[in-house]
Amino acid sequence: MPQHPEPVVSELIDLLSLERLEDNLFRGQSRDIGTKYVFGGQVLGQALSAAQATVSASERKAHSLHAYFLRAGDIDAPIVYDVDCTRDGGSFSVRRVTAIQHGRVIFFCAASFQAAEDGAEHQVHMPEVPAPEDLDGNPSLPAERLAALPIKVQRWLSRRGPFEFRHVHPRDELSPPKRPPYQQVWFRLSEKVGDSPELHRALLAYASDFQLLGTATFPHGISYYQPNVQMASLDHALWFHRPFRADEWLLYSIDSPSAQDSRGLARGQIFDRQGRLVASTAQEGLIRVVPDASAAAHVPARS
């Protein structure tokens, strides 16, 4: 690990390194990254970190996580994670994690762990896309366009986060055109970190919440950044297939097969540079277009 990693990277690692209060009880801090509520990826990464801390890493590794977001998280308060050691079988272990804030459950998930086994193997092919070195990073907005946006959105768009993203087909999120519901995005942690597979899985859980649900808005020409659009994750599934490093380029290939009843479904496949499928995701989320910006600002996203 570098002697002095960038602050945004070290802050993220600190965020995923929970305080152990009891054997199966943990506390994580929250960070304001410009979203109205706690970023869903933060809760996913912290919950997985809590679950992993109750399983012997040398014996079993996480292979899947299934989560539900129940309430919006308060960015100004810590989150307590209560881990139930549901089962330890001959090959598999299951942990149920409940996230609590202000005395209420805001999230829960089940994570499954498996001892290493040999068996049949196959995978789909990685899409043929340009290499990340051949793509531009996210361009900065002109100052006058940025100044016209709400303060929270300004902070989100102007921040330098711990992950670098390069879109194969960039979209103007402030004036989005209508287009088919799929995209490919290269991403990686912006600094090298240690070799712990548990850390890299928690980092991927965090990053997997970026880009995913937004793909369901593509055919409708709307965006999270528009003041009358309300979006929130409802559930999230994540499967780990093969070893990977979150600090090396990964391709996120996403599609959205359906949107209906103010909900959109998105699916993702994550490949490494060698074309190996290392993880898969799925998420359903709320997508509402409300009458005006004030309505979007005052209606809780999960009402």
Rank of each mutant, 00 (worst) to 15 (best):
150 P>Q: 09
150 P>H: 09
152 K>Y: 11
152 K>C: 05
153 V>P: 00
153 V>D: 08
153 V>K: 03
155 R>P: 02
157 L>N: 01
157 L>A: 04
160 R>P: 01
160 R>T: 13
161 G>Y: 13
161 G>V: 05
162 P>W: 08
162 P>L: 10
163 F>P: 12
164 E>W: 05
167 H>N: 11
168 V>S: 05
169 H>E: 14
172 D>S: 09
173 E>P: 04
174 L>A: 05
175 S>V: 12
175 S>G: 05
176 P>S: 03
177 P>T: 07
179 R>M: 13
180 P>A: 12
181 P>K: 05
181 P>G: 05
182 Y>A: 02
183 Q>I: 06
184 Q>S: 08
185 V>M: 03
186 W>V: 04
186 W>L: 05
187 F>S: 03
188 R>W: 11
190 S>I: 11
190 S>C: 08
191 E>T: 07
193 V>W: 00
195 D>T: 11
195 D>F: 03
198 E>K: 02
198 E>M: 08
200 H>A: 01
201 R>S: 02
202 A>D: 04
202 A>C: 12
202 A>L: 01
203 L>Q: 04
203 L>D: 07
204 L>P: 01
205 A>I: 13
206 Y>S: 14
206 Y>F: 14
207 A>C: 15
208 S>H: 05
209 D>T: 03
209 D>A: 10
211 Q>T: 15
212 L>N: 06
212 L>K: 00
213 L>A: 10
214 G>T: 05
215 T>Y: 07
215 T>V: 15
215 T>I: 10
217 T>V: 10
217 T>M: 15
218 F>N: 14
219 P>H: 06
221 G>I: 14
221 G>Q: 14
222 I>G: 09
224 Y>I: 14
226 Q>H: 12
228 N>V: 14
228 N>Q: 15
228 N>T: 12
229 V>W: 10
232 A>V: 13
232 A>L: 09
232 A>P: 10
235 D>E: 15
235 D>Y: 14
236 H>T: 07
237 A>W: 01
237 A>R: 02
238 L>H: 00
239 W>V: 12
239 W>C: 03
240 F>P: 00
240 F>G: 03
242 R>V: 09
243 P>T: 06
243 P>G: 01
246 A>M: 09
246 A>K: 07
250 L>K: 02
250 L>D: 02
251 L>T: 03
255 D>A: 04
258 S>I: 15
259 A>G: 12
259 A>E: 13
260 Q>W: 08
260 Q>P: 01
260 Q>K: 12
261 D>R: 05
264 G>A: 06
264 G>Q: 00
265 L>H: 04
265 L>T: 07
267 R>E: 00
268 G>Q: 09
